[in-house]
Each structure stands twice: as C-alpha cells, then as structure tokens.
C-alpha cells in the first residue's frame, strides 16, 4: 500500500552519524613537505558530531538546542548536503531548503531584481517558479520601488528582508533554519514568525536552530538537545528546554 507508507515515511533519517573536522596546521606545499620530512603531524582532528541518530517525520517541527560549538550548524549542513558525514548515513526525502545565512549569494553590484532571480535559482528554483513567485517575494520584503536599485545601496535591514523573503518563498518539503529568524525590525520579525507558523500548519518539515527559546517552544513540538556533538535529549520541546538549562557546557 504505497499511500500509507508514503504518509508514514520520515523526511530526514540520520543514522550513526559522525563528523570529524580536520584542523590543518599546514597551508602550503612547502609546509606540508617539511612537516612530512620531519614526520610531524600536519593535522589534528576534532569530533564535531558522534553517534547521532535522529529521524524526523513528515510535518514535524523540530528545535535543535545546544550551546555554542555543540555542533548544531554542522548537523544542519550535513542535512543540506554542504558537508558529508565521515561515518553513518544521512537521507532526506523531498526538496531541502536552508535559511542558513541568508543572502550568501547576493552580489552588491546587481539590482534587487537580478539578485532575486540569482538567489532563487541558487536555492533550486526554476525560471517559471521564480516568475510566478516574484511579485510575492517583493511584496513580502517590503522593498517596493527599490527593487531595481543596486543592492549595495540598500540598508542592512532592506538587504536582510529581501534575502529572507527569497529564501522563504522557495519550494521545499524540508526547511532548515539556522539562527536567522532574528532578522529585520519588530514588524518584519512578526511577519516572519507568522510565515513560519503557516509553514508548520501546511505540514512542512522544519528543523530549527535558534537561541530564542521562547520562539522554539512556541513553534516546535519536539526538541533535541546536543552537547559536544552528542544527543543528550530528544523529546517534547518543553522538557528539552529544561534539559538544556540543566546541562552545563
């Protein structure tokens, strides 16, 4: 029965994942060669994630909690495909989009319009999809007539609003959010929150990293706490927040 298995199938499967960063001490052929001659180590390693198992189902909104350096961004990058795990498996079903550092693909010398097209394409949209969504993107960003101005003349608020608006209007099944919801001024934040709620209501899968615990507990039903690369709690979001507060770095 494909129908029921479809409905039951998870969106993200993370199994036994380990991510090891290699910190290189050499940055040129010469240094590497000298280190090799002297039998010195050219790199040391650092386990950013270790033995991680997480399954996220369809329509779930999961908050990822943990102190700085615990490996949250690394985990999201593994799901988006920017990084690959050194052990274990990461699998996703459907289109993945990331609100990870919005505006990474913006070019200051291009107009807002050009940047919308470029960035939406970078985020995986086709020309037809962008054409269809363009007005909505501009409307949401409140950029108005400045859309044909070069982006370098934008205020930082305008820039962030446009970048965020592009990202949130892409087509996706899974949305990864890494500490970007605190953008823009209060009214715009309000609007973003409403949009996020709308996404949750429409059964999109959300994986959110934020320091705003109030917002996490409001949006998510499930919370996962990561400490030094290991999962220490996975369950209802309020208990997760309590677990985070109880844990020390």
């Amino acid at each position: 029965m494909p129908k029921t298995s479809e409905a039951e199938a998870p969106r993200i499967i993370i199994e036994g994942v380990r991510k090891t960063y290699r910190l290189r001490h050499t940055h040129s052929f010469k240094e590497t060669f000298v280190a090799w001659l002297r039998k010195k180590q050219t790199a040391s390693t650092f386990e950013a994630l270790e033995g991680l198992d997480i399954t996220v189902g369809e329509g779930e909104a999961v908050g990822l909690l943990g102190y700085n350096g615990s490996g949250k961004s690394t985990l999201l990058k593994l799901v988006s495909g920017v990084l690959r795990p050194d052990a274990g498996t990461v699998l996703t079903r459907g289109r993945v989009a990331g609100l990870i550092e919005v505006g990474a693909g913006f070019h200051p010398d291009l107009s807002g319009r050009e940047n919308v097209y470029l960035n939406a394409a970078i985020l995986g949209m086709s020309k037809e999809e962008i054409d269809a969504k363009f007005d909505e993107i501009v409307e949401f960003s409140e950029i108005g007539e400045f859309i044909d101005t070069e982006v370098k003349h934008y205020s930082s608020g305008m820039f962030v609003r446009l970048a965020f608006s592009v990202a949130i209007h892409t087509q996706f099944d899974i949305l990864l959010v890494d500490e970007v919801l605190a953008v823009g001024d209060a009214p715009f934040r309000e609007k973003c929150n409403a949009k996020i709620h709308e996404l949750v209501a429409s059964d999109k899968t959300l994986f959110i990293v934020s320091h705003d615990l109030g917002m996490i507990s409001e949006i998510c039903d499930r919370g996962i706490v990561i400490k030094r690369g290991r999962k220490i709690f996975d369950g209802p979001v309020d208990e997760a927040i309590a677990a985070l507060k109880a844990s020390k770095r």
């Binding site: 298995s5 479809e6 039951e8 199938a9 998870p10 499967i13 399954t55 189902g57 593994l78 799901v79 988006s80 495909g81 920017v82 990084l83 690959r84 498996t89 990461v90 699998l91 996703t92 079903r93 993945v96």
Partner: peptide
C-alpha cells in the same frame, strides 16, 4: 521499526 525498514528508494543522499 516505526517507519518500516529499508524502503529507501524515495530518499536521497544530500550532497552527492
């Protein structure tokens, strides 16, 4: 298994 084991044809490995 909560999700029915290895019917993974619908899944993609990100970044490959």
């Amino acid at each position: 298994s909560q999700y029915g084991l290895p019917d993974r044809s619908a899944f993609a490995v990100p970044g490959v």
